[in-house]
Design a protein around this nucleic acid. Structure first.
Lengths: 104, 104
DNA sequence: ACTACACTTCGAAACATGTCGAATTATCAA
DNA sequence: TTGATAATTCGACATGTTTCGAAGTGTAGT
C-alpha cells in the first residue's frame, strides 16, 4: 500500500463493503463454490441483480445503487445478458484483499 | 459471515478502513515487522497517537477521532502510557480479515 | 500549585450516504 | 407495435461523516 493511488483504491473497496447490505451482496457473489471446497474454479457463478437482492427488503432502485457502488469500487463485474444483468466476483480481487491483511 | 451480528461487525471494520486517512493509520500499525519478513512476533510494535499522525496534515482532534473510530471497530488497541496513548494491532484481526477474503 | 505536553470532547459547517417512489431505458415475446 | 419484465436514473429527504478550532482532561516535571 505504498503509493497514494493504491491507498485510495483500497479505501474505496472498503467503503463499498462498509454497508451491511452491500456486504451481504458481495458475500453472496464471493462464496461462489460449494461449501467446504476451495474456490479455484475458472468460471465464477453469476447472479442476476434481482436474485442477489432476495430477502434483503430493499427497493430495486436501492439494490441497483448498491451494486453500482460495488462495481465502481472494482469489487464486482456486471454484464447484461438479455433482460438480466449478471454479476460476479473475479478471484483476483479476493486474493488482493486477502494478501493485504496477510502481508509482512 | 453467516449470522447478522458478524456481518454488522465486519461492515463496521470496513467502514473504519474506508477513509484514506484511517487506512494509512491502520496500515502503519499493521506493518509492524521489518519489510520482507513474516509478521509472527508476539509483541506488536506500538505507536503513540502523535507519531501515527505524522505527515498526514490533519488536526490533532481529527486524528483522535479517526483512531477512536478504528478502536470502536475493534481494529486497533489503545492504552494510556504516561502522557501518551499507545496504539497497536493484534495479529488476530488481520487473520480474521485475511481469511474472510480467502474462504471457500 | 503551576506549566507544558499529549490527547479527547464539543459544537459547527460542509459534504456524502442510504433510502424511497416515480419516471426512464433496455430487452424480449406475442 | 404493444406489453411485460428487469434494471437504472432522477429528485428528494433524513441521516451520517469529515474536518476544524476551542475548550477540556490527564499526566509528568518544576
Amino acid at each position: 500500500m505504498s503509493n497514494y493511488q493504491n491507498n485510495k483504491a483500497l479505501a474505496e473497496m472498503f467503503k463499498a463493503l462498509s454497508n451491511p447490505h452491500r456486504l451481504v451482496l458481495f458475500h453472496r457473489l464471493m462464496t461462489c463454490c460449494a461449501p467446504g471446497t476451495k474456490c479455484n474454479a475458472d468460471v465464477a457463478i453469476k447472479f442476476c441483480v434481482s436474485e442477489l437482492g432476495e430477502g434483503l427488503n430493499i427497493a430495486a432502485s436501492t439494490l441497483s445503487h448498491h451494486l453500482k457502488a460495488l462495481h465502481q469500487a472494482r469489487l464486482i463485474h456486471m454484464e447484461r445478458n438479455g433482460k438480466n444483468v449478471e454479476c460476479w466476483v473475479e478471484p483476483d480481487v479476493l486474493k488482493e484483499l486477502s494478501t493485504f491483511f496477510n502481508q509482512s
